[in-house]
Design a protein around this nucleic acid. Structure first.
Length: 963
RNA sequence: GCCCCCGUAGCCCAACCGGCAGAGGCAGGCCCCUUAAAAGGGUCCGAGUGUGGGUUCGAAUCCCACCGGGGGCACCA
């Protein structure tokens, strides 16, 4: 039954190595043979309940389902290093273990393939991005296959496949075709909105009707404009992140804190442009609240919470003439301390509020040196728009701003508050306007100092306070008018009281705001999904009907975007698709006869394809639907009341904490609201695998030397005989410490590589790579091999007619329990340690001359299988089994051999261990104490002393507390 | 500045709900096999858990402070 031609190790030559030792060469033969057989037999095909992939489902119908997957790779041209497979191997071990243990396991893999790097690489090489991308996918597929992973190949796809992006476009249309009903707290179809507006049971949402007439009096085009403003995918003119160096706009999530592009590190500028947006903010509360229902790490949840950035506070209106400035504040209690106001430079009221002339005696610091407020404002706005995010968010920067020449009125005391614009107030957060309270806010204090504005303290600072803004706790002061006094109150109480007062006066309300902004969804790139949108004669967007999907990406001569000098803030984006002129205009019949339409020429961002790929795994070939609902319910549906459903285990890098994971959760919730999926969340459980780093070495000049050539002697490191410095960092070419899986597989085989990677720690833990330690894993597999196979003859050593000793049985069942624990908790290192112990026990108990009982050898092989599947399959076959072990039940520990008849318990005196006694395992506290007292040494301690208390924990210990 | 996570042997890591700090690997010492070698076999060595307090009969584990490392957020009102 052996999968290898049962040839001895011919390559060893000298004859010193036993002919049937598990050498790297033998490992290679075994691995390649089994990879072929798995493919040939479809060993890892996973049946669906219904549909084209349902063949064989009856075999697994009574099994629980388990859906495990990795964050799919983006196949770049650069090769893999040993850090990359860690997560893939973690899911593979889990998948193989759960299949053996009786689950119907879905473990698929696809490829993320649209996006900037592929396009940039294509531009460099002059090849079409599809060509380079498909070559990269083929390369990575081959590498994964060589690692021996058990993906169901039939469910593999790439996001660039038209059969896939057809449904990405379809989902876009569902989002475009819906709106968020605040009252219901969920998305609904846009037709239902129109019906309610027509029926008069609903008014257009605030800010959606610019026409100043009620819905019923609007014409058709005006009505469409109002409806479009409600959609979850909508066109919006607003300042966006424009990156001239990349030639595209970017989402907030793609811009780093210092105002540069996450990819390429180019400066990013704020520019007002009309772009597609996704109304993710409508889901802020649900995205935040449902984090509590997910099995994710605290740190990851924390990152999402930070990004969503909920803050509770109040909205307060300040009158300026006929206008009202709305501000958001988390400290309404400090309202009496407001001494001026600030609007963001882009605030819509700036135009209307700005005075014609400076009043007499205007402080020259307030005018920006301009002759009139209008000039000052225009100049300041111009400067602000040119400033990159980097400049603007630089905290150390001096506060700047100009006065509008008008004053607002503080509703609490009628005080006149000069109104400024300043770029330290951001357009997109809160209302884009603040009340400035320099006494209790550091930023406001800085501004007030520079502009000579008064400071009123409303919180009593402590005695030793040194000045500046006091942001700490303290009793309220200076906060009273004829109707209300906050003086003496603490912060929480003061907030409650003043909010109540504002609400009663109609001047404010309690509210919540979020840092999360809507998702900028347009990119000026070639290599992405085209929008299924055309524009009609009114320049309004119209959905391309489902029957016309996919909207195929057209061939163009030049797929590179127009890029600009990195710092050219005045430049404007120009999508490559706009140059495909025979594609951009199209004649379609969308219901009212053939008409000319103009196509949307932006493409979707890279994140679109990765937002829903987990759904497609479930039903990869369905051309009628995104996913068959019955299969979705089976693989992703909730497992009980209140369960969110979703993928059972999702493993990937922490770098996607706020991008991919937030976007995917948002899309999923929309699809849930519209009834397309039964699960509320896409990923029930998520684990971030650790990083693998490696040592790197620098010589005395500080240059990196090849890490592979460094020798260690007595804790010192040498290269070419000269001492070098050891550092620790990312694996890669720049640190000259690159190690590839291909090298390791070539040197040891995939199984050894797998065992080594899994043995270095729990999956979520980062760890160092140490090539020299890999040999430990190889030794383990060699010892396991020796338990089953005679190295001299190649014959099977397991003995059928032998019963294992009680000691061996105890060792076996302890191992089974430990291995199950390790696999179940992603602590593969523990499982490997238990297997090592058992193997060592068998080696020493049975030695070279006595065979190991089959009833022990077989479970050992099965336990090794998830970690080192090829060698395990080979041993299983040699043990006489015709079928792959992939579907063989995983060993179950027998309780009988786990409980000891007698246990050793520690005896403590005053908490210090003084003796050990052996007692029956079921000895109760009294028996324990008696046994302990009977011990000579303990008797010595107790002699003449007063025992104040005895703590006896059955099975654990006895502690005598002496008085 | 705010928030989160982590500090156990020379190194990587174990220790379930507080109960004898050690399972496993690497490195190191010794022995066996070998003419010799090693990616073979065996065996031995090793820290009192970052520091200081507290709770407890008992703390690596719980609490507080500090030190060190990693990460996230940050002109977010």
């Amino acid at each position: 039954m052996s999968q290898t031609a049962d040839q001895p190790n011919a390559e060893q030559g000298t004859g010193d190595v036993p002919p049937h030792r598990y050498t790297p060469a033998l490992a290679q033969r075994i691995e390649l043979a089994w990879q072929d057989r798995w493919e040939r037999e479809g060993t890892f095909h996973t049946p669906n309940p219904v549909g084209p992939l349902s063949e064989g489902f009856e075999r697994v119908a009574d099994r629980p389902k388990y859906f495990v997957m990795d964050m799919f790779p983006y196949p770049s041209g650069a090769g893999l290093h040993v850090g990359h497979p860690l997560g893939y191997l973690g899911t593979d071990v889990t998948s193989r273990f759960r299949r053996m243990d009786g689950d119907n396991v879905l473990h698929p893999m696809a490829y993320d393939a649209f996006g900037l790097p592929a396009e940039q690489y294509a531009v460099q090489t002059g090849q079409h991005p599809r060509v380079t991308t498909e070559a990269n996918i083929a390369a990575i597929k081959a590498q994964l296959r060589r690692l021996g992973v058990d993906h169901d190949e039939r469910r593999s796809f790439a996001t660039i496949d038209p059969t896939y992006y057809k449904w990405t476009q379809w989902i876009f249309l569902q989002i475009f075709g819906s709106w968020f009903d605040e009252r219901a707290g969920r998305a609904r179809r846009i037709e239902e909105l129109v019906a309610e507006l027509d029926a008069g049971t609903r008014e257009p949402g605030s800010g959606t009707n610019p026409f100043g007439r009620p819905w019923a009096e609007l014409d058709e085009v005006e009505k469409r404009t109002v409806v479009d403003a409600h959609r979850l995918a909508y066109l919006h003119q607003a300042p966006v992140n424009w990156c001239p160096g990349l030639g595209t706009v970017l989402s907030n999530e793609e811009v780093t804190a210092d105002g540069r592009s996450e990819r390429g590190n180019f400066p990013v500028f704020r520019r007002p442009l009309t772009q597609w947006m996704m109304r993710i903010t409508a889901y802020s509360e649900r995205l935040l609240a449902d984090l509590d229902r997910l099995d994710w790490s605290d740190s990851l949840k924390q990152m999402q919470r930070n990004w969503i950035g909920r803050s509770a506070g109040a909205r307060i209106g300040f009158s300026v003439g006929d206008e009202v400035i709305e501000v958001f504040t988390t400290r309404p209690d400090t309202l009496f301390g407001a001494t001026y106001m600030v609007l963001a430079p882009e605030h819509p009221l700036v135009e209307a509020l700005t005075a014609d002339a400076w009043p007499d005696g205007t402080d020259p610091r307030w005018t920006g040196g301009a002759a009139t407020p209008r000039e000052a404002v225009a100049e300041y706005q111009r400067q602000a728009s040119r400033r990159s995010e980097l400049d603007r968010q630089n905290e150390a920067r001096e506060k700047t701003g100009v006065w509008l020449g008008v004053n607002a009125v503080n509703p609490v005391n009628g005080r006149e508050l000069p109104v400024f614009i300043a770029d330290y107030v951001l357009t997109g957060y809160g209302t884009g306007a603040i009340m400035a309270v320099p006494g209790e806010d550091t930023r406001d204090f800085e501004f007030a100092e520079k502009f000579g504005l008064p400071v009123i303290r409303t919180v009593q600072p402590p005695e030793d306070f040194e000045g500046g803004a006091y942001t700490g706790a303290g009793p309220m002061i200076n906060s009273a008018n004829d109707e209300i006094s906050l003086n003496g109150l603490g912060k929480a109480e003061a907030i409650g009281r003043i909010t109540e007062w504002l609400v009663a006066r109609g001047a404010g309300e309690a509210t919540v705001t979020y840092k999360l902004r809507d998702w900028l969804f347009s990119r000026q790139r070639y290599w992405g999904e085209p929008f299924p949108i055309v524009y009609d004669e009114h320049d309004l967007p119209v959905a391309v009907p489902q029957s016309m999907l996919p909207v195929l990406l057209p061939e163009v001569d030049d797929y590179s975007p127009k890029t600009f000098e990195d710092d050219d803030a005045e430049s404007a984006p120009e999508p490559p698709l706009s140059r495909a002129t025979d594609w951009t205009t199209v004649e379609l019949d969308l219901g009212d006869g053939p008409k000319k339409y103009r196509r949307e020429t932006n493409t979707m961002p890279n994140w679109a394809g990765s937002c829903w790929y987990y759904l497609r795994y479930v039903d990869p070939d369905d051309d009628e639907r995104m996913v068959n609902p019955e299969n979705e319910r089976y693989w992703l549906g909730p497992r009980g009341e209140g369960d969110v459903g979703g993928v059972d285990l999702y493993v990937g890098g922490v770098e996607h904490a706020v991008l991919h994971l937030l976007y995917a959760r948002f899309w999923h919730k929309v699809l849930f609201d519209l009834g397309y999926v039964s699960s509320e969340e896409p990923f029930r459980r998520l684990v971030n695998q650790g990083y693998i780093s490696a040592y790197a070495y620098t010589d005395e000049r500080g240059f990196y030397v090849p890490a592979a050539e460094v020798e260690e002697r007595d804790g010192q490191f040498f290269h070419d005989g000269k001492p070098v410095n050891r550092e620790y960092g990312k694996i890669g070419k720049s640190l000259k410490n690159m190690v590839t899986p291909d090298e390791m597989i070539g040197q040891y085989g995939a199984d050894t590589f797998r065992v080594y990677e899994m043995s270095t720690g729990p999956l979520d833990q980062s760890r160092p790579w140490e090539t020299k330690a890999v040999v430990g894993s190889q030794r383990l597999l060699q010892r396991v091999w020796r338990v089953v196979v005679d190295e001299e003859t190649g014959g099977v050593r397991a003995a059928d007619d032998m019963e294992p000793s009680e000691e061996t049985l105890r060792a076996l069942h302890r191992t089974i329990a430990g291995v199950r624990d390790g696999f179940g908790t992603l602590r593969f290192n523990i499982a490997i340690a238990r297997i090592t112990e058992l193997t060592n026990h068998l080696t020493s108990a049975y030695g070279a001359d006595r065979p190991v009982p089959r009833s022990v050898a077989e479970p050992l092989v099965l336990m090794v299988a998830p970690l080192a599947p090829h060698i395990a399959e080979e041993m299983w076959a040699r043990l006489g089994h015709a079928e792959s072990l992939a579907w063989t039940p995983f060993p179950v520990a027998d309780e009988r051999w786990l409980v000891e008849d007698t246990v050793q318990v520690a005896v403590q005196v005053n908490g210090k261990v003084r003796a050990q006694v052996t007692v029956p395992a079921d000895a109760d506290a009294g028996a324990l104490e008696a046994a302990a007292r009977a011990d000579e040494r303990i008797a010595g301690y107790l002699d003449g002393a007063t025992v104040r208390r005895v703590v006896a924990v059955p099975g654990r210990l006895v502690n005598f507390v002496l008085g």
